[in-house]
Simulated scan of single mutants.
Amino acid sequence: MRNFRITASFAWFGLMLAGAAADAAAAAEPVSVVLAKPDATGGVEVRANSFRATLERKLRLVKQLLSLSPAVLRIPQSNNAQAKRKLAEAQARYAKAETEFNASRGEAAMLLLDESLRQIAAASSLVPDPVQQLAQKRSRNTQLREAIRTFQMQQKGLSSRMSPKKLQASTVVADVDRIDGMVDKADALILGGNQDEANVVLNSAYQSVVATLNKILAAETIVYGLKFDLPAEEFRHELARNRSYEELIPIAIAQLNTVRETAVVAEHYAQQSRDLRVIAQKQASGQDYIAAVKTIEGATSHLQRSLRIAGVVVPHSSEVPP
């Protein structure tokens, strides 16, 4: 006895053709086929008939997809040569599947139909629905604008808390003006109906915002040149610096598309920083500012590590000359 187990999983193609949804759902169910000598119960014949019925449904579904699916009908009207080639391959495999079915070679027909469905899916993905494509572009536009706005707010907050000696304010202002100009250009492109180019400009603006933020963070690591009259002043400065870094972490994780596993590691370092900050604050409350400064600097180093893991370029303090 030879056993053949055939599983057809393509119910999702019903989304491409509403009229084929029922057939797709039925054809998606696993079907076991056993070819053997007939027995007294007639079970083998029942299973063979079930397989044939599934194969017929699959033939109808593929035929409907090739002739009626809007996703497929868009392909010949497009300029995508690769999609047209894949569609031609799908049609050829369907035609051959019909031949195999009529010759009672069901297994071969099933394999050809599966390949035809794969080619239909691949071809359709190359020529997306214009309405859905526009919606995706608008969604991307919104995401970029929100990311730019969030990073700009963070950049302004960091700049306002930094010493002018540590960062050339004119450079940051020029960066901000350039980014604002890029956003204005994107707005003009959208008004002119050029969503694609607008998103390209917004993506460049987003990269510029991140670069400016990294520039501020790099300047923030130059701490050796600062002089404080009192240890308490130095501690307050380091405490504010620590909190500035911590504010960046959830923003970086959210806006830089940090994968979940990496985000967990970044948060682990952030929690270590919070634990050390509590210790530093207790040391400061006891007037031991020298120890408090050392502890809070250690806490900040954990936040720098967390940001690097999330994808923000933050130089080590030791890497930046005084």
Results as ranks from 00 to 15, higher is better:
residue 287 Q to Y: 12
residue 307 L to A: 04
residue 263 A to R: 03
residue 3 N to V: 13
residue 12 W to V: 09
residue 262 T to Q: 15
residue 305 R to G: 13
residue 241 R to C: 04
residue 64 Q to G: 11
residue 198 A to S: 08
residue 295 T to Q: 06
residue 259 V to R: 12
residue 122 A to G: 00
residue 74 R to S: 10
residue 15 L to S: 10
residue 306 S to D: 04
residue 308 R to T: 12
residue 192 G to I: 06
residue 149 R to I: 10
residue 60 R to T: 13
residue 258 T to S: 07
residue 276 L to C: 01
residue 267 E to V: 14
residue 185 K to T: 01
residue 131 V to W: 07
residue 74 R to N: 10
residue 20 A to W: 02
residue 235 F to H: 02
residue 207 Q to H: 08
residue 308 R to S: 09
residue 154 Q to H: 13
residue 176 V to L: 05
residue 292 A to H: 01
residue 211 A to D: 05
residue 124 S to L: 03
residue 246 E to A: 14
residue 203 N to H: 07
residue 222 I to P: 00
residue 289 Y to F: 13
residue 8 A to R: 10
residue 252 A to Y: 09
residue 153 M to A: 15
residue 128 P to L: 06
residue 45 E to F: 03
residue 272 Q to I: 06
residue 212 T to H: 02
residue 99 T to A: 14
residue 33 V to W: 15
residue 125 S to P: 01
residue 154 Q to D: 14
residue 140 R to I: 07
residue 117 L to V: 12
residue 52 R to Y: 15
residue 217 L to I: 02
residue 254 A to Q: 15
residue 266 A to M: 06
residue 57 R to F: 10
residue 144 L to C: 07
residue 109 A to E: 04
residue 57 R to N: 13
residue 176 V to I: 03
residue 140 R to K: 14
residue 164 P to A: 02
residue 228 F to G: 05
residue 245 Y to A: 04
residue 1 M to K: 11
residue 288 D to H: 08
residue 121 A to H: 02
residue 239 L to K: 09
residue 94 Y to N: 11
residue 45 E to P: 04
residue 201 V to F: 03
residue 303 L to P: 03
residue 145 R to G: 10
residue 314 V to H: 08
residue 19 G to M: 07
residue 208 S to R: 09
residue 56 E to S: 15
residue 78 S to F: 05
residue 205 A to S: 05
residue 43 G to W: 01
residue 126 L to G: 01
residue 82 Q to W: 05
residue 53 A to V: 14
residue 170 S to Y: 00
residue 252 A to T: 14
residue 174 A to P: 00
residue 136 Q to N: 14
residue 13 F to H: 06
residue 156 K to F: 08
residue 242 N to M: 10
residue 118 R to P: 00
residue 182 M to K: 04
residue 155 Q to W: 09
residue 317 S to F: 05
residue 160 S to T: 06
residue 49 N to K: 14
residue 10 F to Y: 11
residue 169 A to K: 01
residue 112 L to K: 08
residue 264 V to K: 11
residue 18 A to C: 04
residue 69 S to E: 05
residue 174 A to R: 01
residue 238 E to D: 13
residue 42 G to Y: 01
residue 8 A to S: 10
residue 207 Q to S: 13
residue 176 V to C: 00
residue 6 I to T: 08
residue 86 K to D: 11
residue 249 I to N: 06
residue 132 Q to G: 12
residue 78 S to V: 06
residue 58 K to F: 15
residue 174 A to K: 02
residue 23 D to I: 10
residue 104 S to I: 14
residue 28 A to C: 09
residue 164 P to R: 01
residue 80 N to D: 15
residue 237 H to R: 06
residue 228 F to A: 02
residue 270 A to K: 11
residue 90 A to K: 02
residue 63 K to R: 13
residue 183 V to W: 00
residue 83 A to C: 07
residue 161 R to C: 05
residue 117 L to G: 03
residue 178 R to A: 10
residue 90 A to T: 07
residue 64 Q to S: 10
